[in-house]
Design a protein around this nucleic acid. Structure first.
Lengths: 249, 249
DNA sequence: CGCGGCCTTGAGCAACATCAACAATAGTGG
DNA sequence: CCACTATTGTTGATGTTGCTCAAGGCCGCG
């Protein structure tokens, strides 16, 4: 039993940390940029219980997918980065069991379900890409679940930071930065790792003191990558391949 | 940090509890029953690291999808029941990050990836069904993740039992049993809920004493459904719709 | 009837939650 | 530029949940 307390929030907060760059590389369907929509940080792209008439292709910004328990406990189940496809439902007229909250200002291309259906008839390729995207989401969910179920607090936090860092960096291949804007609060890290924000804070403090990572007011700096990989309990082989953006061999 | 201990196992154990019945209702692709394969309880359908040339359509039996950490900690990320589609990889020549272990003797129809690709060209409908199946898997994974991340041990166990019970019963619509063969050890329940088998045992004992459920040597009996729903922390509305096999209204 | 896997129970402890206060920061309006 | 406020981060004291270690009982099977 944990994470019951929720601190006051109203969901404003601005964020244009993310370099806009050419968002088109992330488009699922390249024609039509009419359906593009901007959503400001803190708002929901869609909420729990909404019946999905549309699919969102995230072009720019960060989004958190989350679930809620009746008493307010919250779990962030996924962080979506540009290129992600959101809002696919198991069946037509099913209700979403999770919501999607913009962590930064966000640009999405909105694809009505009907349009998608017709696309998939014309070009089965697109449905296949969708399936692969979903398979990836599943794999990531399994990975996260393993983290939450079987790793210590320290390992979980390290693993999350490492994951987000590598996914972020994969968008700018070839760069060698070890610092980034990570638009999360410690509470959100807690919601993603199944911890309280108080404990997240302690874990982060410890890791800072030990010179592993520094996370302060939404800036993440990796001080010692190897150490981080070790703490996260990730196979170094695999971690290396993540960092270099190739498939694990 | 938990669940490090793993008890000796060799994976024998028989299980033909499941009524064989007409397994054809669970077929993704109805022609060709040539590719059918039987796998005995305890064996893996595929293992971590295997590069998937094939997809499995589970026709009969129970399967556990699991991940491993280097030091042997294990997380069961999903239980697959007849009708499930297993082994879809995020990309061709990617390696599976999770394995699939038969909990009972199992019958699967094996569909080589190449065959699936050609099917999806002929009949885009199939790819779409695949996508929906994957979307459902994602939703279930998110649900489970929330359980593990945010619920107490008691709630987690109750939630899992309730889920498995309703999913099992959905296969025989209209029946009103509240007892079933559940081919799991307490250790496997622990691996699925992120607990140790010792603690699972204590939780189950408590729930038995309180007249909620009885789980003993792989037989599950629901003593007090309403109570179980309450303990699991599930919206009664939703639970009711599960039990009746209709979509939540 | 002996063995291996599984379940059960107790004692002690570590990890993490909760409660509570306070400090740092960014955003807002003057 | 400063004062003001909401949010977020920090730290300590204390409590609880669930883990670890350990021993023994139960059940099915050869």
């Amino acid at each position: 039993m944990n994470g019951r307390a929720r601190r006051g929030s109203r969901g404003d907060d601005g964020g244009s940390w993310i370099a806009p760059s050419s968002a088109d590389q992330h488009r699922l369907v390249s024609r039509y940029r009419a359906g593009d929509r901007k959503i400001e940080a803190g708002r929901d792209l869609f909420s729990i219980g909404s019946s999905g008439g549309a699919i969102f292709n995230l072009l720019d910004g960060w989004v958190a997918l989350y679930t809620l328990l009746e008493d307010g406990r919250r779990q962030i189940v996924q962080f979506a980065l540009p290129g992600a496809v959101l809002g696919i439902l198991p069946s037509k007229r099913a209700q979403a069991t999770f919501g999607a909250q913009a962590l930064t200002d966000v640009v999405v291309s909105v694809i009505p379900a009907a349009v998608l259906a017709s696309f998939s008839r014309d070009e089965p390729e697109i449905t296949m890409r969708l399936a692969r995207s979903l398979a990836r989401d599943c794999s990531m969910a399994y990975d996260r679940m393993t983290s939450i179920g079987r790793r210590s607090a320290r390992e979980r936090v390290a693993h999350l930071l490492l994951e987000l860092f590598t996914r972020y960096r994969a968008q700018w291949p070839g760069t060698r930065i070890e610092e980034m804007a990570l638009p999360l609060t410690q509470e959100q890290i807690g919601d993603a790792t199944g911890l309280t924000f108080v404990h997240v804070n302690r874990v982060l403090s410890a890791m800072r003191k030990q010179g592993v990572v520094e996370f302060h007011y939404r800036r993440l700096r990796i001080l010692d990558p190897d150490r981080l990989i070790e703490v996260a309990g990730v196979d170094p082989q695999m971690a290396l391949s993540w960092l270099e953006g190739r498939s694990p061999g």
